[in-house]
Design a protein around this nucleic acid. Structure first.
Lengths: 210, 210, 210, 210
DNA sequence: AATGAATGAGTCTTCATTCAT
DNA sequence: CATGAATGAAGACTCATTCAT
């Protein structure tokens, strides 16, 4: 993702400021200046600051969704996907790099803060965000269905509930991480993930016996 | 909690604005006016806006911690406590009422947003927040230990992991709720909670036998 | 000196206020209003009030230095120059007019006060001011050297000391004038100047003999 | 001078602030706080801030005048007095100590600045200040008359002009000193003083001959 | 397409001043 | 005598926004 026209550059630069400082503290002047243009240029492409912000967030959501879709549509087995997911640090870094959002996304606190403030300003974004989350949960459900077909997990698994469980737990673990000085969550996350997996997985004693 | 001096009133009023609008958008003018005093009065009690904010957040954290401590120290059985906890709506309302924080706390998005912005401004708060969360997790662990003694849950339960699991899942569920238009989380939360419980609880066949 | 762009106009207007009222009592509001622009315009050209002040003082110093240089580089004889100098009233008026600083400079108290307050805020100005004064003294020394060559004053005159004497006495006389209600200094100044001159001048008996 | 009642303490403390910071930047709060009382106390003794300032300056003028009177009424010979006077550093320090004004007076820039700003606010002070200066000049004249009687200086000396010359030169030298980073004035002052003295003194060849 | 000047509304902050106690 | 609470007016500063060029 190498933006080449001013509008895209502005959105990326603004996103950077909004995510790092927050909406109110990001002045159009600073954003423009950081890009080597003047404030006026912003008003060519965006109706006003709110409009710029809205566009930025939409762009961020698109990028994030794209990454989710991509990282779940690959044909990796469910267990491996979960392991990757709960390897938070690495997973975030990869996303940051592959999406070109760098500093913006790498810090979960920033991203979350950005979402919440965007949500306050533009309640209509709720639909868009929910879309993404439910897309994520549906993808999980899909993978579980496949896993059931493959005999990897118990057929009577409540895929809906487990998808929710994983999603919520994942978000919660990140949040606690944001509030914590320790690295507990980095070790406890995978540990809990393992517990969940054991609960739904079909033990393959034969595999080991081979 | 019926604040009777101006300073306390100011903190409560300010907390209200900060939680509802966010720090930057809450003007001292509005806060003072809403209380029927002048802006100058604020500066009689607080060094500046930041100082006021800091005091507000500390007060909020105190109140929340107090409520957590209170609601977990009662002698109710673990299962009942969890059921109450995941009865989010009611639980939140009760907290809001019993703490007098009303509009501030009832909305999780607001509280979370407030925390995050406070954390950005005052990184030292991280310690305080982590204290509260780890206090919460420790209380859960304690209750589980008691439950083990009572023969309610399996002795080999990894209380540390489960406490983290519940806490993270709880936070995550609330967060997803904040991002969602539906009430899914209200039904999925308790459902998952039940699953977790079944995993650790010792089945009381006699009960069923009745 | 006819400033035509806003920045110059602002500096001149501000200088006017600063010299008349003093820094603290000159509000940006008044300055802007007096010029028919808004306060914001000031911040378009200057970082802040201090910056504006700094620029004003530098401009004043430049103007004053320019005037000193000009009035001493002319080819008038030393004695005439001194007479002009100690004809304070007229000399000041001429400077005010020829530099366009009008009301700012005409009153020595104002100028002195301005310098002192500027010096308090910006100690680095000391170098600049000292430059000007030593430039003035050096010019005096130069004129005396010429006068020695011309046989107007005694060759053994301690030009360094006399230059200092004249400069200090001049400043002191102005200062006493600022503190006085009478016009004493206007008559005593030239009188003392005459005394100094007599001390160093070579008597031209032939002139009188004519 | 050891003030023992609150009013005097307030005046001294305020003088300290006014001289060090300037009128506008000295808040009644700071003044009161530095003394361990509250702002309200000031309003017991003074009508308002201006009144306090006025009293402070009058007190300063009294002290300075007292010191001048004292240091000139002693029976020391004229020459010695002048030498003392132009030994600026020591002379200032002595005054500061013997008057208890310490930090206030020791810095000529501060004192001068204080005078000028006081003069702007209270034009009536001009009379008082002029009184002091003319008192100083008259004392000089008196000493010269005595010196004439004693045969120390030429009888035809224009005492009026010389008194003015010395006063103005003294003030000017201090002023240049305030504007300078070097110590030139400390050596040039006495040098010029010597020149003036030689001009008016009667040479005592017999003394040397002894 | 973009600039640069200028606006004006709003914000935090300071402080002299008052007054009940 | 003195305090402490509270006021209100004023000031510096920021910034989104407009507009002529």
């Amino acid at each position: 993702m190498q933006p080449n026209d001013t509008k895209e550059k502005l959105e990326m630069q603004a996103l950077h400021f909004f995510a790092l400082n927050d909406y109110e503290r990001s002045s159009l002047n600073d954003i423009a200046e950081a890009l080597g243009v003047t404030k006026g240029a912003i008003y060519h492409y965006f109706k006003n600051k709110d409009d710029l912000f809205h566009n930025c967030v939409l762009r961020l959501l698109d990028v994030m969704e794209g990454w989710f879709v991509h990282s779940m549509s690959s044909d990796i087995p469910l267990k491996m996907m979960l392991d990757n997911l709960f390897n938070v640090e690495e997973s975030m870094t990869e996303m940051a790099e592959s999406t070109g959002l760098g500093a913006v996304i790498v810090n979960y606190t920033n991203t979350l803060y950005l979402m919440l403030s965007a949500l306050k300003k533009f309640p209509d974004l709720k639909d868009r965000i929910e879309d993404i989350y439910s897309g994520f949960r549906n993808a999980l459900k899909g993978m579980m269905s496949t896993a059931i077909s493959n005999g990897e997990i118990h057929p009577e698994t409540d895929t809906e509930a487990v998808a929710f469980e994983i999603t919520a737990f994942y978000e919660g673990a990140l949040l606690l991480g944001a509030f914590s000085n320790t690295q507990d969550y980095a070790v406890l996350g995978p540990r809990v993930c393992e517990t969940i997996w054991k609960r739904i997985a079909i033990e393959r004693s034969t595999n080991k016996g081979k």
